[in-house]
Design a protein around this nucleic acid. Sequence first.
RNA 1: GGCCCCGUGGUGUAGCCUGGCCUAACACGCCACCCUGUCAAGGUGGAGAUCGUCGGUUCGAAUCCGAUCGGGGUCGCCA
Length: 595
Amino acid sequence: MTVERTGCGLPRAADAGETMTIFGWVDRRRDHGGLIFLDLRDHTGILQVVINPQTAAAAHQAAHAVRLEYVLRVRGQLRTRDPHNVNPRRDTGEVEMYADECQVLSIARTPPFPINEDTEVEEALRLRHRYLDLRRPRLQRNLRSRARFISHLRSVMGEMGFTEIETPMMIRATPEGARDYLVPSRLQPGSFYALPQSPQLYKQLCMVAGLDRYFQIARCMRDEDLRADRQPEFTQLDIEMSFVDEEDVFAVLERAISSAWSASGFRGTIVTPFPRLTWHQAMDRYGVDKPDVRFGMELRDLTDAVRGSSFRVFADAVAGGGVVKGIAVPGGADLSRSDIEGRLTEVVRTFRARGLAYLWHRQDGWQGGIAKFFSEAELAAIGEIAGAAVGDAVLMVADRPPVVAASLGALRNQLARERAMADPEKMAMIWVTEFPMFERDQETGEVTPLHHPFTMLHADDVDLLESEPLRIRSRAYDIVLNGRELGSGSIRITDPAIQERVFAVMGIDAQTAEGKFGFLLEAFQYGVPPHGGFAAGIERLVMEGLGEENIRDVLAFPKNQQAQEPMTGAPAPVDVAQLAELGLTVSPTPPATQT
RNA sequence: GGCCCCGUGGUGUAGCCUGGCCUAACACGCCACCCUGUCAAGGUGGAGAUCGUCGGUUCGAAUCCGAUCGGGGUCGCCA
């Protein structure tokens, strides 16, 4: 635009005396009638401009009409401020520009929400004017930190000998897993590409190709419902490695994340190696497969302690094959009956628990509606096992094991939030290993892989394939940070015989497997190295690194909960002609969605 | 698909439970004027919302009820 341009945030006292030109947006304007002060903002920061009507009459006249968010070019001399005029809260606070020229490059309507501060604004309005939201300090910071983090990841991966490879965005639809986004083919009417849910198969083929160590900052698309940490398109650090086992994969991820983390200035410190929990340990102790281990309050099994009690709810549950578990809430004796029976019971009800039992451990003994059903010995045992001290409360759920785990796990997280039990500066990164290979689909009753069908089984469990598939442990693992799943991976199956048996358990016969994954199985016949890998969600990492609660705030152009982008209006209907070219027609009324 | 929360000038909130004193309040922003050292500038004055929408209850509705729309969170879903 011009030969010389100085960033607004860059000038320092040492630059005083220089004449320079700055470009930027008006962040604030203070008109004293005579002097006008303008704070000019660009991506580097903010510089105060002083416009004096006596020394720069034309500039002053121009500045008189200037409003917030006008785009200006200002030329003038940089001067140091008198000591009593220094603004210590700003990097450029020791200097200011004395304007000679002030040129309005673009006027601006009054913005729909404040740009120069981070006030809470309704999500719909922010998304509709995303370019203005992105102009605000918080999102500027977030996007820059995200970029730095990715940049560091790239260089660490390079240092470790990984090759960055781009895999196709238009691929064959995979029947497994999340719903695909489809792309109709013009040249093959009636046929569709799918957008990748992940580059899974391609990266495994890269291993067959002898690339040895693959990585990609990969865009992934999944047509599923959105959450605070889930968008339909997102980015993963995707990794695959040949001739490795879990330890090699863990070491790579630990180094990549921890070094990029600190280099990016993210909050807290990542300590390596990450502690490990098996899936069973996580479920037993925390009730969830992604435990937040920054605080205790672990689930304790009270089944034996209450088996013989006269409290029918517990006794019946145990007799019916259920379990009774509880958590000791530190200082929980201050929880009121209405706290527990209202808000907290609501939490466990969400997970289909029928109720929440509670006992207060007070100075004068055990209290609470159900205390009378237990003997002194039983109460003592409950307190002992739960680890409840005087002043605590024990909250208990009796039900089928999955219901108990899920409801108490959620309750534990809820209480930790309410009572600020987790150190916000602590970064509790852990590996959760030995996930089950299969789970039973609640609707169809089919056995489906928890991770994906190419996940290798635990060596000791292979014999259970046909007899008790649901008990098989896999060689799949997750990284969990502060209770949030950051990503997952596995060692893959490379033995065709085992792969065939896994498909069989899933009800996929050889012919079907050939049709769906034939290319992979064929590739494996030409010499496949043992391999494994991982995929880590970039947005979730950045969220934790910046302390953001919502994935939209670490993405430039996110979608709303309806997967729409209010700014551009995507998705939108298309011309009939465009459809015709693709051999498509749209039903006038959408067919009833299958549930 | 279920459940929960929110919806009041441009922005953020108060008022709503306990209907009338609301001719809807406050802060910021906006407009005009005054003001030569402010930096969340200051002063004076002003414009701006019939309370998401529709319907109902009532003598009377921002306030109560129902429906609906929009936003968010969550369960299901996310190999």
